[in-house]
Design a protein around this nucleic acid. Sequence first.
DNA 1: GTACTATGTGAGCAATACCTCACATTGACT
DNA 2: AGTCAATGTGAGGTATTGCTCACATAGTAC
Lengths: 201, 201
Amino acid sequence: MTAIAPRKPPRQNRSQQTVTDILEAAAHILEDRGLAKFNTNAVAERAGVSIGSIYQYFPGKDAVMVALVRREALRFERDLEVALAGAESLPLEAALTRLVRAAVDHQSAQPNLARILDIEERRLGIGTEVEATTQGTAARLAAFLDQRGVTDPAIAALDLANMARGMIDGALDADPADLTRRIVRAALGYLTLGSQAAGGP
Amino acid sequence: MTAIAPRKPPRQNRSQQTVTDILEAAAHILEDRGLAKFNTNAVAERAGVSIGSIYQYFPGKDAVMVALVRREALRFERDLEVALAGAESLPLEAALTRLVRAAVDHQSAQPNLARILDIEERRLGIGTEVEATTQGTAARLAAFLDQRGVTDPAIAALDLANMARGMIDGALDADPADLTRRIVRAALGYLTLGSQAAGGP
DNA sequence: GTACTATGTGAGCAATACCTCACATTGACT
DNA sequence: AGTCAATGTGAGGTATTGCTCACATAGTAC
């Protein structure tokens, strides 16, 4: 069928490796030195490639950021999937604990990177392709909540994710002890407490 | 007493007004055009002053940011104080609702500004004077929680603040309806649920 | 008017950033 | 060895930014 077929599958091994190197370098720079030091020259040097190579695989600096956001989002989604594997029969609190622990672990591994990616995701997300990837995670969480009979799974998924993110970001370098349990407590309250609870004097 | 007294009180009216203009311009630029467009030239133009004037009252660009963070933190603290005035006799949920509503209102007024200031506060807070101002708000919240007999008021104050901030930031431009009630539910769960609740099958 | 200080101005410097492009290198295939 | 396309290089163009400093203006006291 292909009238103009490439004569052979062009070896993508090298280039794929270069792309990986660039993303790895970008991640390390963001984690270790912050967003301000994240520039094309630094990334190229850390990756062991020239600046030109970056622009061979990415249309611009922001595209590297987008790729990083997507990669990390996919990894996190995979972690969530693992945490939820076989958790259908667990009681709500136990299942929530597995979810929250996955989130805490993910953010703990590279806290600065995770924070920066959250911020950049918002900045780049206005009208780009980033949202699609991130919404996969939200959809997975919403499905879990739906199984549990939560009234408004989509909104609840968003709220719980934002809640956990906020608490983790703020507490990681302050009071990390028992953080998972604290978050689970709040999540349980959000999910189980009725609209007007605890009114008595 | 004053051996070397200034011969008269130097009129601070003009300069005070210039400082206010600069801060107001900075706030508007951050809210309307984002952190990337926040540069000295833009601030000076928006404020109707020259670039030199900025450097007459601030040692650098970051100092403008710090001043903005402090101003907004003070305003928020004042809002919290108002919300808590006469709330001692209210039941926990009602008092929490007043607190959360104050936070939601504050972030809703200038959501982008609030988000950016949160981020910049963290970036600038490493070793500067910003922390002192922000910790005032946390201390006020901790005192409220202490009155209610909360076990670990300092940590709880931090957790609740981070929780609310995360949920508000994420939901403001998605599902603002009932946001206050949703946050209160999570906060109530955090505060009232025992360490190991809801275990039964 | 004169002197003096406080306040305001903005052209331009130094630094840095993103990105281009003409060129070098590599490696598969003949 | 020779050819060709894919891949890699990095000096430098262009643009922007934070900031300085020599100067102008305004207001007060005499």
